[in-house]
Design a protein around this nucleic acid. Sequence first.
DNA 1: CTAATTGTCTGACCTAAGTCAGATAAATGC
DNA 2: GCATTTATCTGACTTAGGTCAGACAATTAG
Lengths: 291, 291
Amino acid sequence: MPYDPVFRVRRFNRAVTAEVGALDTSFLGRGRPLGAARVLNLIGQGQSDVAAIRDDLDLDSGLMSRLLRSLEEEGLIETVSNPQDARRRIARLTETGRCEFQAYEALSNAQATAFLARHSQPEELLRAMDIVASALRRSHIAVEEKDPRNADAIYCLGEYYAELGRRFEKGFDVSLSRDPDAGDMIRPRGVFLVATSDSLPIGCVGLKGSGGDVAEIKRLWVAPSARGLGLAKRLMAAAENCACELSIEVLRLDTNSALTEAQQLYRRTGWTEISRFNDDPYPDTFFEKRL
Amino acid sequence: MPYDPVFRVRRFNRAVTAEVGALDTSFLGRGRPLGAARVLNLIGQGQSDVAAIRDDLDLDSGLMSRLLRSLEEEGLIETVSNPQDARRRIARLTETGRCEFQAYEALSNAQATAFLARHSQPEELLRAMDIVASALRRSHIAVEEKDPRNADAIYCLGEYYAELGRRFEKGFDVSLSRDPDAGDMIRPRGVFLVATSDSLPIGCVGLKGSGGDVAEIKRLWVAPSARGLGLAKRLMAAAENCACELSIEVLRLDTNSALTEAQQLYRRTGWTEISRFNDDPYPDTFFEKRL
DNA sequence: CTAATTGTCTGACCTAAGTCAGATAAATGC
DNA sequence: GCATTTATCTGACTTAGGTCAGACAATTAG
């Protein structure tokens, strides 16, 4: 007899509303209104274009202008005209501003550390926070092409191999598998796509081409914290899209019957099972899709 | 190489801050400022004492007074003097107010339902939300005495039995175990304590007395979503406290070696292992503590 | 070159939220 | 009974946040 789901969601909302003050105190406690602190924070993170900041925070141009001026009067930022377009302005931190920004960062980090330290099972708590954050921000998940040797890509691949290790009865050893050469997953031969949610990598897929009109889908992975959001489908669609752009006509992939959700996805999205097309020791099921 | 915990907590904070607007839109969208809506909401939930509402929302008496008047002018509430103390005022909804309150409730429920419906693994998501909500509100967890036949108590016991069923190799059947008579867990013989977080039951413990100076600790349970918060320790301490009030001198309990965390807790909090004192089929380890 | 568009700034104005110093009336302690 | 305390109300004031219309300068389309 689990408790009413709607009740549980509302309880979560109440908890969060009651504590957001605390969650965001990092912005407070330094004698600056929230708006100004948020602008300072964005500038500190490298957002220099005033219009972009205004857009990010959804501010009126008048209000934005005043916030910038108040930060300027405090000596935290300086603004100059954009040389490419003198109507636009660019803001950057002064030395004092950099210190102030660092102070906010330190507060925020300390608060996060303290929150975790109060819990005796922080890994469980983090897992839960990841799930909730991904669900709340599902409409802001970005799928982008990255070099497979980029840090985010390597992180995804590491997690992918670890997951295979857990799910295959005999574990998984990358060196035994035919590891695609990075060049085969970079344009013009192929692509590597990484999904990020607020810059945390939560999924990936590789399209491994050889220059011909046949290519392979490899390394489809979705973080456990991002499952249930339809991300695998989205990654596969994006990869197929890239394949079209690269004039690829036939896609193939190999998979293992232990990965049941993946197989379900393939069958539901127009893939048909074919016979073995490589001698890799891990896969036991093979699919093909004509574009 | 898991991602930096501090980064993950801050990502969660950002997600929540960005979406609280959405989480709390239930309060908006009906042409009333947040403050007034929150007061209306509390009154709707049965908080009638004006001072209590002020205390709950941490409002200045002046502000509170104005909010009440604006709701009164809208015809949503009426206030009368408290007959016991004519300085105090009591607020209650009018018929119109009840409709308006129901409209807020409906909005809030619809929003929660929609959020869950967007996710294809809602049970996973709810579990995560419970964990986060309990951690955020850990300082507001209430431990209260309840009748063991009360709905919250029955819910806790059901979850407790279900958990034993999962953890004992041969499952668990309540009818085979010596189920304490409800009367033995009500004062003056004993007590039953339930921990709730924002009215969701998340833990319980029973003190089963017989009228003499020996009593037993039974049914210690903490919801999976509330583990890591030190709740078991707090429940045990509360139960011991009650035992002292009831002039009980010796506490005993039986447990199973499959429940490792529980045993650890007992050993760390002054309990000593003793020999079997009943013929219940499930326990295999027995403890005692002199108060 | 001219007209329209774009990005920023400024002043006037507004609401929500909250603080503070009394005023008032009821209740309580002695 | 009288002084003190308590709960609420009222008016004056402040801050944060935000809207709106127009000014101004730079850019772009034709």
